[in-house]
């Protein structure tokens, strides 16, 4: 196919339908930004449900949030913010062509993400032991409000969906790690690192909203 004389000199990462690396990088970044907008709207539905029920039953939220462990929630917030920092450092390393730094920062980020999930796991288990399940399986009797099950339905949906995003993020980061070790990234080409970083910041930002909305009500 005689479609480009430039192909002989084009870098390996450049896909055939782009004119140059800049266009490819800009496109990928914009694509990820738009995808993040859809993510926000996806969570937005849950936030809307949260707001509606909170407006109807304000006292329910005050009572039910006492069942959430503020200390471990705060720890998790710190963990995620830390991971956002390391992911930013990973991008910086890639820009400076420091592949070793990139790999180390990715390892730390993955470690922090795991820590987050482990803490979350214990929080869930602790609630399950008390009988705090979502919706119709709710059996806990410590909250004197007939809609307590709905609060925890919202809690589990929000944190569960967020947790799912963290797991997807871990998967992406492992994939980056494998590629980085193979030497796929350099200062010229680090688009996947950049856009995964954007995704990870969003996961972080959503948690920063979830934490006060669910844990810090009084």
């Amino acid at each position: 196919m005689a479609h480009s004389t430039a192909s002989s000199s084009a870098p390996a990462h450049l896909q055939h339908h782009f004119v140059d690396s800049d266009q490819q990088f800009e496109s990928s970044k914009m694509g990820m930004w738009i995808f993040l907008v859809t993510e926000i709207l996806f969570f937005g539905g849950l936030f809307a449900a949260y707001i509606v029920y909170r407006a109807w039953y304000p006292d329910l939220y005050v009572q039910a949030s006492t069942q959430l462990d503020t200390f471990w929630g705060a720890v998790n917030t710190a963990v995620l913010i830390g991971s956002s920092l390391t992911v930013a450092m990973a991008i910086r390393s890639a820009q400076l062509n420091q592949i070793k730094g990139l790999i180390i920062n990715l390892y730390i980020t993955i470690g922090l993400a795991f820590t987050f999930m482990v803490i979350k796991y214990f929080e869930y288990v602790h609630k399950f032991e008390k009988g705090i399940f979502p919706g119709q399986y709710y059996t806990y009797e410590g909250i004197a409000h007939e809609k307590a099950n709905i609060f925890f339905s919202i809690y589990y949906m929000m944190t569960g969906l967020h947790g799912l995003h963290v797991i997807i993020g871990i998967g992406l980061m492992i994939w980056l790690l494998v590629k980085a070790k193979k030497g796929a990234f350099s200062a010229e080409y680090y688009t996947p690192v950049e856009i995964t970083g954007l995704y990870w910041h969003l996961v972080d930002v959503i948690w920063i909203f979830l934490f006060p909305l669910l844990y810090l009500i009084d």
């Binding site: 996806f42 539905g45 119709q136």
Partner: peptide
């Protein structure tokens, strides 16, 4: 579309787990 996605997901959860929203 994301809002439909979350709505249907809530409906799926409603049927699967009885979350009751």
């Amino acid at each position: 579309t994301p809002v439909l996605a979350i709505t249907l997901l809530l409906l799926v959860m409603e049927r699967a787990l009885g979350i009751g929203i």
